[in-house]
């Protein structure tokens, strides 16, 4: 099954896909922005500041999703010695870090009108900050170590250590008394968010997911060309 993940097989797709993903991203983002900034209603408590949710929450979801995927890919890649999985994981990391920073900064901006402070060392915010440190460490490993085998090993260890933090982020609002509100959207039980707010949130999440896919494809293609550059040197 893993032979289908060979770079030679999928480069013909990944090299053509970015332009289509980009067009789709622009369309979905435009709809999402109109919904988020104009059509969606204000909150009865938070007024218009609730609109920050439409960038803050998707960014947080996607950074957590990317880190979880990176861990899974690194572990499988390490066990089965699939180099391509490390390339995919490495190509995902940059957008994961940027989404993490967006979640932290927009959360901080949202905190000022809602809590009266830009920052609080509460469990959710601190654990998100720790996640960004894991992203930075992961990216630094690929910069520091030129030996791929060593980089594979150390980056896998970082993702395995970092994944411990992911359930802490998710459940921090339930386990501790935090300023951060508890989850409004649940897959297994009824969500407490109104459909008029859920719709822009879903559209913006789709737009952010498309953007991360776009960056991933561009990064992945760059990594493949780098490998091919080395291949030309050996000819």
């Amino acid at each position: 099954m893993f032979k289908y993940f060979q770079p030679n097989r999928i480069f013909s797709i990944t090299s053509k896909a970015p332009k289509y993903v980009f067009i789709l991203f622009v369309i979905v983002l435009s709809i999402g922005l109109v919904e988020a900034l104009i059509l969606s209603p204000e909150d009865y408590k938070q007024s218009h500041s609730v609109r920050i949710m439409y960038v803050h929450v998707p960014a947080a979801w996607i950074t957590l999703g990317i880190f979880s995927s990176m861990t899974l890919l690194s572990v499988i890649g390490y066990i089965f010695k699939i180099r391509n999985f490390f390339l995919i994981s490495k190509s995902l990391a940059a957008s994961g870090l940027v989404f993490n920073i967006i979640a932290l900064v927009t959360g901080s901006i949202w905190g000022k009108p809602t809590w009266g402070t830009w920052w609080a060392w509460d469990a959710r915010i601190t654990s998100m900050l720790i996640l960004s440190l894991f992203y930075i460490m992961y990216l630094l490993v690929w910069r520091i170590y030129k030996d791929d085998e060593k980089a594979f090993k150390i980056s896998s260890i970082i993702t395995i250590l970092g994944i411990i933090n992911v359930p802490i982020i998710k459940y921090s609002v339930d386990w501790w008394n935090t300023l951060h509100q508890s989850s409004s959207i649940n897959i297994l039980s009824k969500s407490s968010i109104h459909s008029s707010m859920l719709l822009p949130l879903v559209i913006m999440t789709a737009a952010f997911a498309l953007f991360s896919l776009l960056i991933f494809l561009m990064k992945y293609n760059t990594e493949l060309i780098k490998i091919k550059n080395k291949g030309l040197d050996r000819l």
């Binding site: 218009h48 803050h56 927009t106 949202w110 009108p113």
Partner: peptide, 15 residues
């Protein structure tokens, strides 16, 4: 946005 514009727009512009 009833005084919240500065927060909302800065979050969107940062993104």
């Amino acid at each position: 946005m009833d005084g919240y514009g500065i927060y909302v727009w800065s979050a969107f512009i940062f993104t």
